[in-house]
Design a protein around this nucleic acid. Structure first.
Length: 913
DNA sequence: AAACGAACGTA
DNA sequence: CGTACGTTCGTTTT
């Protein structure tokens, strides 16, 4: 503990960690920042009240309360424009135009928010908010507080000390930079207490304080460094040479006024002292009322989530009574402990539709607070017949409720050991995904910390307790012990996630869609799809030759050999050596993508470009072929893995290998599809896909009469729409018109702009704009829907599909335009893409159910978003086609028909239609 | 060895 | 300045 004397105040530095933290906020300056950072049109209540400044201010307040955890808080406001400063200098802030009419009323709303949060508000006639802040900061500094000042006014920098930090908003109101003494020194080259000297010399536009012409922060800081402070500069003004010196002498009176005006008052008489600013905690009911009135649903949730229930420190592990069981003990333990839902984890491995399970752990919740929860582990490799029989029967018993984490893999492993599982009532990974589908992973350990506040990993949990282990277990936790801990984490997590699911209206989606689908996907992965390896091998040679040929010719065209796959080397050749016109910029240079190369070819007709494009094309196809060849299993089939918790919209994804991006658009690409064939003992492949499902969903959601009629009429969609937009007969819609309409229709579902449309269609922006306007004139329902979907999402914080699947888009209220507009496009697309995903999932469940119900041997193999691929057993073709059509068409009842087209053939290519 | 960006395949 | 994915390659960073 030591003393430090400054020229302004004496401050003591008490022991860290014990001193109170005081947060002082300049209400006006932050509200103003928020007002200009957030677009007015996105923030208004049902009554028309604009709330962008209130929103931005409150959002910032919540963040800073969360991040800085102050125990004392005050917000200061300017009370009027008349202060001692306007008496000193009549023009002070004279340049400020009257604030927009939308701003004023928001200040009182901010005060309402603050009242609900029980944050003291201070104002004093004749002084500015900064003077109040300066006074409190001084008092609090002397009293040993840690002081944080949140203000958008740089004058507050003069208050910065070791224990006084200014949080200065840099971009909008979402980012605050910490101005410490070192930060001020680094930015301005002088200590904080000298900042007003610099400001006086440089001037402050926003306060209408003119500076010395030609003198910026660099020169000003230099002078302060040379002469110590402003007084020193004034005294030595005659010695300063050059233009700047003359300018200083000419403007000296103004500089002195500036300095007088920017000095903050540190002894304003206030009714409250720092000690009176302790946060008493807020009134929940009042917060609800105020936030309801402002329609701040997302902010309210954030407030309650981050402040009302601070996350408990993640430290406790799990206390469980763990047993490794064999023989008769297995059955009796299972009978005794698994009446209610239990967590299950499986040890083993799984990949590409196959696997092996070596052990299984089961854990029940704590029977009572503080009592260890029972947990058991059975080694499946070493298991005696009695133990194995007990496990087998228990797993197959649908009346024994089980919860797993990411169950598909474990079920695959168990299945290959001959163990079937029934009674899965929950999956914690799927549940977490439905709650927050934008996460990139749903790691059990992460979820455990987030939802239970406990550490899962042994090494991160405290040593004193992790497990109540068997007496002979002195070597520390082994694999089996950890499996039991994980099983326990799963069941505890399930308990926590269920209420979260219910609150998000997602319980039904889990139970009725995702959980049953998991089993269907597992079987699809297990089946895989047969590959004609000879044909695929031949294709590989063919593409390899094409690659070599294209490379050879490309090298000849430029007279040397380079790595054609290196964008860096390509840029050198194209833009330096061949001097071609520059293409669109990327982060690292200029793009060499196919579109740009084609453009360049059109301009230069340089043969290198043609060969390069061919090389790209052939290389890509060859990679796809080689990837597939490597992925073919011993059974002559490829088994993809479907990921059910990746796509934020609700789609599946496919990996290792990805069978959802097998080429189809080009002739050569389709040759790859010819090598996906019907397997031995089956009759053919059958593909069934939804035609234009996303546009149909658009018609349904928008209720647009024109679009609905288009689908009900049976007319070609784009032709129908084109005839309306271009005011011609359907028969007179030519190919060009049709393709424009097609591009726009699909673009709409992605949030396409007129600019984007013009670029895609290679037409002027004006024409694209007109096209869009004409489109919306005829299909106004679509326009209203798209607009409404974003507004609604902004209010609620999420979008919803027809099954109520949500996607949360907090960036819809970001003050960063790029992020906000990105979120808006996501909001446009998510309900459409997501509803399509819902429908396909339901269809898959239906098809699977019907296949089993009708005792058919045919089976589903692949899902490619709007398409299903089945393998049809001999004699079942008609029946399968019928049930697939019915299952898919009936998966949802929209106000337009769901059209399904079906094809059959010996290969995936032939089965296309 | 890992992380990143560019490019490109699908719906 | 159009959404959602996965894979590959080259390049940069550790």
């Amino acid at each position: 503990m030591g003393h430090r004397v400054s020229d302004v105040s004496e401050t003591t530095t008490p022991g860290a960690g014990t001193r109170p933290r005081l947060l002082l906020i300049d209400g006006h300056s932050l509200a103003y920042r928020a007002f200009y950072a957030l677009p007015v049109e996105n923030f208004s209540t049902a009554t028309g009240q604009v709330t962008n400044a209130v929103y931005g201010f409150t959002s910032m307040l919540i963040n800073v309360l969360r991040d800085e955890a102050p125990d004392h808080v005050a917000v200061a406001f300017d009370v009027s424009r008349q202060t001692f400063r306007t008496e000193t200098y009549a023009e002070y802030k004279g340049n400020r135009s009257k604030s927009p009419e939308e701003f004023g009323p928001q200040v009182s709303l901010i005060k309402e928010v603050l009242a609900a949060l029980r944050v003291p508000v201070l104002e004093k006639p004749g002084f500015e908010a900064d003077d109040i802040i300066a006074t409190l900061a001084t008092q609090a500094g002397e009293a040993g507080y840690e002081v944080l000042i949140c203000s958008g006014d740089r004058d507050t920098f003069q208050l910065v000390r070791d224990n006084v930090t200014v949080l200065y908003p840099t971009r909008g109101v979402s980012e605050l930079s910490r101005m410490t003494p070192a930060a001020v020194e680094a930015k301005y080259g002088l200590p904080p207490e000298r900042y007003p000297d610099l400001a006086a010399l440089v001037g402050e536009t926003s306060d209408n304080l003119p500076g010395i012409p030609g003198v910026g922060p660099k020169t000003a800081a230099k002078w302060v460094g040379l002469y110590g402070d402003l007084d020193g500069i004034v005294a030595g003004a005659d010695q300063i040479k050059g233009k700047a010196g003359q300018a200083l002498r000419d403007n000296l009176p103004q500089v002195l006024i500036n300095r007088q005006v920017n000095q903050l008052v540190r002894d304003v008489e206030l009714p409250l002292a720092p000690a009176d600013l302790k946060l008493p905690g807020w009134d929940r009911e009042e917060v609800h009322q105020v936030f309801d009135g402002l329609e701040f649903r997302v902010l309210r949730e954030r407030l309650f989530a981050t402040l009302a229930s601070p996350e408990p420190e993640a430290e406790e592990g799990f206390d469980l009574a763990a047993e490794k069981l064999t023989g008769a003990a297995v059955a009796s333990w299972l009978t005794a402990n698994t009446g209610a839902a239990v967590g299950v984890t499986v040890l083993g491995s799984w990949k590409a539709g196959h696997g092996d399970a070596t052990g299984i752990a089961v854990a029940a919740p704590e029977p009572a607070p503080g009592k260890p929860g029972p947990a058991a582990y059975v080694d499946l490799v070493e298991a005696d017949a009695e133990a194995l029989a007990a496990v087998t029967a228990w797993l197959a018993d649908a009346s024994r409720p089980k919860v797993l984490h990411d169950a598909k893999g474990p079920l695959t492993a168990l299945s290959d050991r001959g163990l079937a599982v029934e009674g899965i009532i929950g999956d914690t990974a799927l549940a977490a995904y439905l709650c927050l589908p934008d996460q990139r992973s749903y790691d059990l350990a992460d979820l455990t910390v987030r939802h239970l506040g406990r550490q899962l990993k042994a090494e991160e949990a405290p040593v004193n307790q992790q497990l109540t282990l068997d007496m002979d277990d002195t070597a520390g936790p082994d694999e089996a012990d950890l499996a039991m801990v994980r099983a326990r984490a799963v069941i505890d997590l399930w308990g926590a996630l269920q209420s979260d699911l219910a609150a998000r209206n997602a319980s039904g989606l889990l139970t009725d869609v995702e959980l049953p689908l998991l089993g269907v996907l597992r079987v699809m992965e297990q089946h895989g799809i047969a590959i004609d390896q000879d044909a695929l091998g031949a294709l590989d040679s063919y593409f390899a030759a094409a690659v070599a040929d294209a490379a050879k010719q490309a090298f000849e065209a430029i007279g040397k050999e380079i790595n054609l796959g290196s964008p860096k080397q390509l840029q050198v050749v194209l833009f330096d050596e061949l001097d071609m016109p520059k293409t669109k910029r990327t982060k690292t240079g200029y793009t060499t993508d196919a579109e740009a190369l084609a453009d360049l070819f059109a301009k230069t007709e340089h043969p290198f470009l043609a060969h390069l494009l061919r090389h790209r094309d052939a290389t890509k196809l060859r990679q796809t072929v080689e990837g597939l060849l490597k992925a073919v299993g011993d059974d002559g089939r490829v088994h993809t893995t479907y990921l059910q918790t990746i796509a934020a919209t609700g789609r599946l994804s496919s990996t290792e290998p990805n069978l959802q991006n097998i080429p189809v658009r080009t002739e050569e690409g389709r040759r790859i599809r010819e090598t996906f064939v019907v397997g031995p003992n089956f009759e053919c492949l059958l593909t069934a896909d939804y035609s234009q499902i996303e546009m149909r969903i658009m018609a349904h959601l928008s209720q647009d009469e024109g679009l609905i009629e288009a689908f009900r009429s049976g007319e070609d969609l784009h032709r129908f729409v084109g005839s309306r937009v271009f005011s011609v007969e359907p028969a007179d819609v030519n190919a060009e018109m049709r393709s424009k309409i097609k591009a726009m229709s699909y673009g709409l579902a992605y949030g396409l702009s007129a600019f984007g449309l013009s670029r895609q269609l290679n037409i002027p922006v004006d024409e694209a704009k007109t096209l869009m306007e004409d489109y919306f004139d005829r299909f106004g329902g679509v326009r209203d829907y798209l607009r409404g979907v974003v507004d609604e999402a902004r209010r609620t914080g999420y979008t919803e599909t027809i099954l109520g699947r949500r996607r949360y888009l907090p960036d819809l209220v970001s003050d960063n335009r790029q992020r906000r507009e990105m979120a808006e496009r996501m909001a446009l697309n998510a309900p459409i893409q997501g509803s399509a995903a819902d429908i396909v999932k339901v269809a898959m469940l239906e098809v699977d159910r019907k296949l089993r119900e009708q005792g058919l041997r045919s089976r589903m193999l692949l899902q490619v978003h709007d398409e299903l691929v089945l393998e049809v057993s001999a004699g079942e073709r008609e029946q399968v086609e019928e049930l697939v059509r019915a299952g898919m068409a009936g998966a949802a009842s929209l106000n337009v028909p769901l059209d399904v087209s079906v094809g059959v053939g010996r290969s995936w290519h032939e089965a296309a239609h």
